[in-house]
Design a protein around this nucleic acid. Structure first.
Lengths: 183, 183
DNA sequence: AATATCATGTAACATGTTACATGATTGG
DNA sequence: CCAATCATGTAACATGTTACATGATATT
């Protein structure tokens, strides 16, 4: 049916919170959805043009700046609800790290351990970020969407903790590999 | 530098195990790397042509079939080692499920709970698959790459268990949402 | 005045899937 | 002989990033 529906969801979703410029949509997605979503200008501006042509958003000149302010229409809100309800079909798996580690014998256990340790470090940094994010959300009064926000934060936390536990198991497995093995 | 390096890694990696046809490369990737990688014919055949032109693989007519058998060259093996050692730059995050749940207020807690339950069911199925995979690997004698295979299986297991734990936390969070809230 | 940030857009490129076209080989 | 599988390839499409071009506004 619709082209680029995922970008459309993100853009309409941002505009469902409040009207804003395309530039601000990008900033909102980066800042608020950044831990599970991303969009580039090259996607956002054509998406806004499409959505405007379809009557799902309405644009008005911004008095204060040279740009335009986009506002979601009733049709746009209805369309967003429809798209949100569509089943989420998971993308085909493509994990570059596991691809490397699977052929790790060609690399040797030392290099593989470095790859894994790197993941561990990044996972610990992520955990700290999520903890801060959680404190932020819990400090603000619930405007009705706190639970939904916390659900996404929890996903990040569980994922990062899983990476940590996996890294430790992987390091144990790799410690048992004979380094004199033919790489 | 090189175009399509990730596909090249997967294809060269498959051929580093044994020479085979392009069709068999696809089957090997699907069967053996399937839980963390995927390639389509539309990527594999052009990749093989590129790799052959670059001298990284060598093709010979297969006596038994109408097709060709591709064999990795010494240059190809060296190239594969180089590419495996390159740092893995993580893809920008794009989690369609979390995008939906973040705007879950527009959908209502009931629909969101259905989305989460679906993840839970799939995660449990994954866990069973990984358990079977682990038994398979551990039943065979170690040809020197068992630890590396187990590292990738462990990643799947930890990821699936994290999804399970997250789903339960999410269901608890969503159970507390007032369903009479304005969607 | 210079610099940073806000703002909009496009073109080139990269990567990937899906559908199609074509034919050989094998097993029932 | 017919169906399934093996085998190779291309074209169209989808999705996405990056780099570029351009200019307005705000801050120091």
């Amino acid at each position: 049916m619709a082209r680029s529906s995922r970008t459309d969801v993100a853009v309409l979703g941002a505009l469902s919170v409040q009207p804003m410029s395309g530039y601000a949509v990008r900033a909102a997605i980066t800042e608020t959805l950044g831990h599970f979503w991303s969009e580039s200008f090259g996607q956002i501006y054509p998406a806004l043009a499409r959505l405007e042509a379809a009557g799902l958003v309405r644009a008005a000149a911004d008095g204060r700046t040279s740009g335009r302010v986009f506002e979601i229409t009733d049709d746009g809100l209805a369309r967003l609800r429809t798209m949100l309800a569509e089943p989420d079909e998971p993308a085909p798996p493509r994990n570059g790290l596991l691809l490397r580690l699977f052929f790790g014998r060609l690399l040797g256990p030392d290099v593989c351990r470095d790859l894994v340790r790197d993941v561990r470090v990044r996972a610990e940094a992520s955990l700290a970020t999520y903890a801060a994010l959680r404190r932020e959300v819990e400090a603000e009064p619930d405007a009705g969407n706190r639970a939904y926000f916390l659900v996404t934060v929890a996903a990040g936390e569980h994922g990062a903790r899983a990476q940590l536990a996996w890294a430790d198991e992987a390091l144990t497995l790799l410690a048992a590999v004979d380094d004199r093995d033919p790489h």
